[in-house]
Design a protein around this nucleic acid. Sequence first.
DNA 1: CCTAGATGAGAACGATCGGTACTATCAATT
DNA 2: AATTGATAGTACCGATCGTTCTCATCTAGG
Lengths: 194, 194
Amino acid sequence: MPVKAGERLDPEATRARILKAAAEVFGRRGIHATGINEVVEAAGASKLTIYKNFGSKEGLVEAVLTDRTHRVRAWHNSVVEQAPPGREQILAVFDLVASWYAETGFRGCAMMNAATEDRGQDGAPRRLARDHLAFYRELFERLLTQAGARDPGTTARQLVVVLEGATLISAVDQDPGLGAEARAIVETLLDSAL
Amino acid sequence: MPVKAGERLDPEATRARILKAAAEVFGRRGIHATGINEVVEAAGASKLTIYKNFGSKEGLVEAVLTDRTHRVRAWHNSVVEQAPPGREQILAVFDLVASWYAETGFRGCAMMNAATEDRGQDGAPRRLARDHLAFYRELFERLLTQAGARDPGTTARQLVVVLEGATLISAVDQDPGLGAEARAIVETLLDSAL
DNA sequence: CCTAGATGAGAACGATCGGTACTATCAATT
DNA sequence: AATTGATAGTACCGATCGTTCTCATCTAGG
């Protein structure tokens, strides 16, 4: 039974390091365009270690996306908890994504990008993208119900459209202004829905 | 392989046939995932002809996207002309995209997909995607001005967010219902903007 | 000290990629 | 009939891909 090892040889840390580096290079250059050797270089890990941990490039991609969607969900749940209930909680979600748009080299939603690259296939990227959309839908529906919306389900789906549309355009146009744009749309929709 | 007299040896027709086949297979499987040999098979054209016409795969991609954005713009301009001026013209745009969502195997906007696949690069796909977004922005701004909107520029950018968001989600979820979803959002935005 | 496991570095493999070269065929022109 | 241009079919090239394998090194535990 292998006990906790030192630092350099800690498998958990190695795995996390590979995930972080792979997420960065996948996001920057695209998944199909990124070779395993680029992940090797970015992570400072050997191919042996990558394939021992993730089995294949496909497995690595799935692990990266799974990690990413979990982190995004945790961030959203966190900012929602810290915002005053009602309308403010919904706007807090869009303030969070607006801060992502403002990051230099923003590349859009990793899950949507992966599903788009993998189009025609019905693998993990598409499934994770759909789950990611479902998370947003359920989050918005919950917040809208609490805020007393007339039709929380419908309005929730509308907010997801706005969120993903703004994210896509912000990435394509490299324009952080889509954060304010999305917020204005949401304000109008909430005025009509609450 | 029998060659139909007078048609298949027409360079214009050959070029158009390659463009159509390439657009289909690029859209269905993705650009990076599609090899030249698949285009050869789908188009019933030889590599020689493809490279004589387009120079490289990159050139073929650019030609396919250029052709696509021109066709889309023509379709939109056509349906807008046929709709009664004002609010109805704007909704006609969304009715047109809704009919695209309803096509079996809808894969989203070719220009946005290509730009997403090419992320990190600053080539033709990204430029054409930006031009495509600019077309929508200008179309909406023109129609909104004619309809007497208070802030046509701002509302136009909002409508583009809704259009691309609905397109992306419809493709990922394979859900034609995003057409009605987008239309409902647009109705609310127009109620507020006109 | 010695063993075992984790890792880094990189060679090697088969497959596939974008792209080129060559040949034969067909249609229209001369 | 000969010529020319466009095309299909196919073999081929170098590069790169994902993946496996080998070997040396490092660390922790016996």
